[in-house]
Design a protein around this nucleic acid. Sequence first.
RNA 1: GCCGGGGUAGCUCAGCUGGUUAGAGCGUCGGAAUCAUAAUCCGUAGGUCGGGGGUUCAAGUCCCUCUCCCGGUACCA
Length: 681
Amino acid sequence: MQNKTKYLVTAALPYANNYVHIGHLAGAYLPPDIYVRYRKLKGDDVIFISGSDEHGTAIDMAAIQENVTPQEIIDRYHFSNKKAFEDIGIGFDIFSRTSNKIHHETAQEFFLNLFNKNILIKKTEKQLYSEKEKRFLADRFVTGTCPVCGNTEARGDECEVCGSNLSPLELINPRSRITGDIPVVKEAVHLYFPLGRYQDKISEWILSKKGWKQNVINYVNGWLKSGLRDRAVTRDLEWGVKVPVENNEGKVIYVWFEAPIGYISATKEYFINKNEPARWKDYWMGDNTKLIHFIGKDNIVFHSIIFPAALMAHGEYILPDNVPANEFLNISGSKLSKSKKNGILLKDIVEKFPPDVVRYTIASILPESKDSEFSWKDLQSKNNSELAGILGNFINRTVVFAKTKFGNNIPGRKNDDGILNYIKDQTETISQNYENFKLKDALTETMNVVRAANKYFNDTEPWKLIKDEKEKCGEIINNCLQICYSIAILIYPFLPFTSEKILSILNSDKTNFKWERIGEINLESGNELGENQILFPQIEDKQIEKEMETENGSDSNAENKNDLKKITEDKTGSGLIGLEDFKKVNLRVAKVIECEAVPKSKKLLKLKLQVGDREKQIVSGISEHYKPEEMIGKLIVVVDNLKPSKLMGVDSEGMLLAAKKDGELRLVLIDGEIEPGAEVS
RNA sequence: GCCGGGGUAGCUCAGCUGGUUAGAGCGUCGGAAUCAUAAUCCGUAGGUCGGGGGUUCAAGUCCCUCUCCCGGUACCA
């Protein structure tokens, strides 16, 4: 008994700066919930943990922008997300938050442990310092003129206008975002976690892991190959967990380091609530706990490299047993560009559709091995033809039959004809699927059981037997009702709400509600049934069309690809070229009709050009020299037949001519007026 | 450009270390049945496994190459 395996299952900590959407659900919340519900049915000792990640500059900044306190921001998202999770039936044992006192203490203890062992390294770097505020300014707390596009309100880490990645020191005329104070450059000391030193240990540890998903191994190997680098663990910020070491005023522990410790703090909190404040150690420090992190693929690095390295450094904690990361769930129709995150919010979808319908749809397309695609039509068809048609129908036809033909009582039985044993056998393969984190397969097999139930009903034809073999008929219906109970157990991990409803329809309680009772006799003959209800009402076309419309409305990605695909061979001859060669280059006059910066790029501008009666788009690295608006209307010279290419994902169908020397760049322009499209030779 | 992941029936996806006629669900079409939310059950059709080349007795599965999509990274004359 003492040695029974304990399971510590975590779901990624959602950042309390955004609403959780169904992509998150598919990646990091529904899978562990299903898994945990299965373990609980098996009677395993399992705790399911998550909580809001509530620190970091993004939250602080959001607060400033909205002119509220960070507390208000995190409260908004924490409680909203928490409720959405409850509504969809994610049964966390605890959904904590990193702003809790217990977390601050835990994180500080962890930090001090490493600090006292001299594991953390001091490094000096140049940083902006505000004399007035008497502190160093974190990246996002600096505003200035973007060196790329000239935007005067660029942030220290990124220019929101042109999307360039910046460092605060690059900004022209930097100033404090809060007080407007002009900062000075000063040397700042920060503590670093020597991740590089753990390269070998991590590598060895990963290699020793069996049964990890291939996508996770690939990701980790990619990181290991390019070499692990030390990471700063302190940051200049007010909002966060204070660095518990002298001479570090105004510094907090960097969120990447502090947040995952939240799993530990949440466990502590869970046991404090249960009045067993020391029990958490049995899980985090015991030798028979399986720590399992469910996450999306964007989190693999943190959960399979960085956090384990930190745990190794600390030394007293267990390491993850598995990190079953999922790929991404895409929304069909609208290709979600990385810039705008068009997700379907969890809190919205649970208002429109029953939670189990959403759970079922998502569970059946879990991105376990590759990105998968969600569509509203899929949800509709899953509901109508699988949930209603197969599952709902079986329960309903059985119950209606028993009610009308057997006076609302469970008819008697003698012995079964093998169907229950068949179902019991199936649980073995289903169990295997759960154990291997193959939840989609588990769902398929589960539904196959329900299909078999329908087949049983069809094959035995109780509606015929009722006429002159009522007793035999009663036995079949008894079997079907027993199957209903078994189904309630089987589907519980995926459809907990429906599971409850079935129990209530059967007028039964949870005494036999255990995995090993599947395929057993769990209902007593003679008992009265409860009130019947339709488990899955049809979803009408209208309802689906409405969702599809609202979705498409927000998406305006209607760029058709051009068919012009002339390819020119460019052979590099050394020295002189003949007229023939020169003529291969098709130079034309083009008028700039639109121009904007390419998001996230430093130097690229996207230009829409008029060339004769055609339009074409080119991308050019000139934004350090020309602003988008001053480009419009200019008559420039372009190479018209250049092989098209993509720059940062944006199509470019040519190049413009410009002179360049010593960092100076000037465009080749046309003297006077001439029709765009005119040939240049 | 580079790194990683993909491209398998109309749709959504399975196919581990290469091995008999490539699978499932939904959808299609045909039939049976009528207890049931016109739900169920049986059967049918549908794939040159993105294109090309190679290794092998044998490749969706390994190698090369091309192409398209996704993510990361690169920044461009």
